[in-house]
Design a binder for these strands. Sequence first.
DNA 1: TTCTATTGACTACATATGTAGACGATATTA
DNA 2: TAATATCGTCTACATATGTAGTCAATAGAA
Lengths: 120, 120
Amino acid sequence: MQITDAELEVMRVVWARPGLSAADIHTALEGSQDWSRQTVKTLLARLTEKGALNAEPEGRKFLYTAALKQTDYEASATERFVDKVYRGRAAPLVAHLADSKGLTEEDIADLESLIERLKS
Amino acid sequence: MQITDAELEVMRVVWARPGLSAADIHTALEGSQDWSRQTVKTLLARLTEKGALNAEPEGRKFLYTAALKQTDYEASATERFVDKVYRGRAAPLVAHLADSKGLTEEDIADLESLIERLKS
DNA sequence: TTCTATTGACTACATATGTAGACGATATTA
DNA sequence: TAATATCGTCTACATATGTAGTCAATAGAA
């Protein structure tokens, strides 16, 4: 299941608020994405076709819910990424994260407890 | 700097062995990638155009070296990935890695010392 | 020297992706 | 009821990406 960058923005909205219509999703994206109504609809159609979204008819419109869970998407996207860039080795990835300013104090604390958990 | 999946396979060869010719790179990819000579040349041309590779004329052919360092590529690819999928938060990424079989004992040990280093 | 193999340059083409217009049906409002 | 706003469907089009063919020049072999 491949989700493109633009499609992911749409998925985010649906994950956050399931059951919105195309127009609602378009509205929800204003501010972050300057897309026309048609663009959003195209992305919705592609995602539905791919099986990532379900479109429930409701009166004259459709309400969208995610068929693909966010955690499942994240897991598979991460696996693909690690396989592609790091040949499946996770440690160098984290080393890179560490080198970038990407890790906040909070992240580090989270990682620490994660490590504790992993060791058991 | 966007490197596509196919292009990345070519970069790997050049990172591992700088200064090969197109034919050498094609040969090096046999086994992992069933690409024609032309396909490899197209990828080489695209990478050179993007500035990821340097092509040094050598007699009648070109010898390729990386203009983009592997660690720099990995760092920026990782940053883009984390921004895209995790909105820049690294901890949930590692949590996913932990849940998959992606982390070996060794990885966990590496992570632990990494965390120690980060805390200081 | 003539044939052949090698090499780069140019070109091609299907599918994916980002982005959106046109159009017809229906609901809402005046 | 007539005008208008809304919604879905179909279609479009440029650029990116994966994959590769053709051709002319040149170097090496016979």
